[in-house]
Structures are given as structure tokens and as C-alpha cells.
């Protein structure tokens, strides 16, 4: 396959960037998208150019490192896959492919196609866990969990934190990311203990980091490589409202909000 690539090039966080055009040829349709970019980079390196920086690691669709906005869609044209699992057979010979980094105020560009997603870490640090210590927990089978709930929790927990939801959202909102974590933990008895505190703190953190609001366009669900449902956002809203309206207020939470 022969392709024309239009790629966002930006030397560093502070530098100006622009779209630059490249041609690649002889790409196998069985290659992955990254193997195609590898081929481009090898060519650039050998011809004294500057290879394109992009984030990638496991290359099997699970670590969530990869983050390319391809032809107007995060992770490209295929539904339910990450960029690393995108194969060139999804494109036609002679295609022009636009490749851009995720765009959001909370995800500043570091270099070329790489963005800083530590905002997601901060949101999890705000409460995306169950506060248990190592040691001193009951036997794993002490609390039965209905299989349906457990499965639903798992569906929410499959989030890989890639940020495609933010990239796809017209408002750069992180609601699906947070909704998934809030849902995962709120659906399990182990997570319910802190549910009220968790949702309030995570939402407050999200707002502080400059993500947008949810307009319920559901672009996030359409682009999520793990197919996480927007019903998780509704569940978060529900949790949030009931926390605001009915939860006992702890002094420390009041202060931290």
C-alpha cells in the first residue's frame, strides 16, 4: 500500500506545531498502524530526519498508552479497538491519513503526537480506589456479590485510561472515564462504603483540571475501545446527586471540597 500521511509535528510542549505531509510506500495490509509508523520512522532516521514521536507500549490493545486521533476519530475508523490494534487493512491504497494528538486543555501536548495524561492519575488519586490497607481484610468469599452486579462492575472496570473519551468529546469532558471508575466501585459492596465521598471528590478534581461538561452526545461511548457504556455516566450522576442530597457530611470532606 502507498499512503500519504498528514501528521502533527511539534518539537516540545512550548514549541509551535503544524501538520506535515509524508509519503510511505510498500506497507503490508496485515501490518498494524504502528508498524506502518515504524516504517516511516526508520525511513526518517536513515535519511537524517526527525522521527515522529508517538506513545505506544503493549501493542496488544490493553495498556491504554496509544493515543492517536486518526481522520477525525480517536483510535481510527474501527470500532472497539485501540490504535495499536488497528490494522492497515482498514485503509485503502492511496488514502490520505490525518494523524493528530488528543486535544484537550487537560492533556497538553508534550511532543508531536504525545500528550500528558497525568490529569487522569490525579482524578484517580482523588478517590478512585477502595481505602483498604494491605493485610487485615476478610476472606474473599465473606461477602457474596450477585454475578450480574459483578459483571456490570467488570464492564465498567475494563477502562484502560487511554483518554479517547476526552479526545472524542466535543467538550473534552472526562465524564466517561470517571463514570466508569465510580460505577465499577459503586456496584460492588466493597466500594459502596466510600461511594458518596468518592464521587464528590472525583468530580471536584475533574472540574479543577479543566475538563468540559457532558453534553450527552455519546461520542465517548462510540469511540471507547473497550465499549464502556454511557449508562455509567448516568450512574455517576445518580451517585453524585444522592451524595449531595442525602449523604452524611463528614467534616473533612466539607473542607476538602
Amino acid at each position: 500500500m502507498n499512503l500519504t500521511l498528514k501528521i502533527w509535528r511539534q518539537k516540545s510542549a512550548t514549541a509551535e506545531g503544524q501538520m506535515v505531509s509524508y509519503d510511505v510506500s510498500g506497507i503490508s495490509a496485515d501490518s498494524s498502524f504502528f508498524e506502518m509508523l515504524d516504517t516511516l520512522n526508520q525511513k526518517l532516521i536513515m535519511s537524517g530526519g526527525d522521527p515522529v514521536s508517538f506513545d505506544h507500549d503493549c501493542r496488544e490493545g490493553i495498556c491504554g498508552t496509544c493515543s492517536l486521533y486518526i481522520n477525525g476519530r480517536p483510535h481510527g475508523p474501527e470500532k472497539g479497538v485501540t490504535t495499536c490494534q488497528l490494522h492497515m487493512r482498514s485503509f485503502k491504497d492511496g488514502d490520505t491519513i490525518h494523524i493528530e494528538p488528543w486535544r484537550a486543555r487537560a492533556f497538553p501536548v508534550i511532543s508531536d503526537l504525545i500528550v500528558d495524561r497525568s490529569a487522569f492519575d490525579k482524578i484517580i488519586q482523588a478517590g478512585g480506589y477502595v481505602s483498604v490497607n494491605t493485610g487485615g481484610v476478610p476472606d474473599a468469599n465473606t461477602i457474596p456479590v450477585p454475578k450480574e452486579k459483578s459483571d456490570e462492575a467488570f464492564d465498567a472496570a475494563t477502562c484502560i485510561g487511554c483518554g479517547a473519551c476526552v479526545a472524542a468529546c466535543s467538550n473534552a469532558a472526562a465524564m466517561l472515564f470517571i463514570g466508569a471508575k465510580v460505577s465499577h466501585l459503586a456496584l460492588l459492596p466493597q466500594g459502596q462504603v466510600e461511594a458518596a465521598k468518592r464521587v464528590q471528590q472525583m468530580v471536584a478534581c475533574m472540574d479543577e483540571l479543566g475538563f468540559g461538561n457532558c453534553s450527552n452526545t455519546y461520542a465517548c461511548e462510540a469511540e471507547c475501545p473497550k465499549g464502556i457504556s454511557v449508562s455509567n455516566i448516568a450512574r455517576m450522576n445518580r451517585e453524585f446527586l444522592s451524595a449531595k442530597l442525602f449523604a452524611e457530611k463528614e467534616k473533612i470532606i466539607q473542607d476538602s471540597l
Binding site: 493485610g135 481484610v137 459483578s150
Partner: peptide, 14 residues
Amino acid sequence: IDLCVAQGVPFARE
């Protein structure tokens, strides 16, 4: 296993 379940790891269930 005990700790992971307490952390909310959604292991498969009957």
C-alpha cells in the same frame, strides 16, 4: 485474593 477482592477487583463469580 482476599486483599484484591477488598480492593474491588471484579473476579469472576458464580
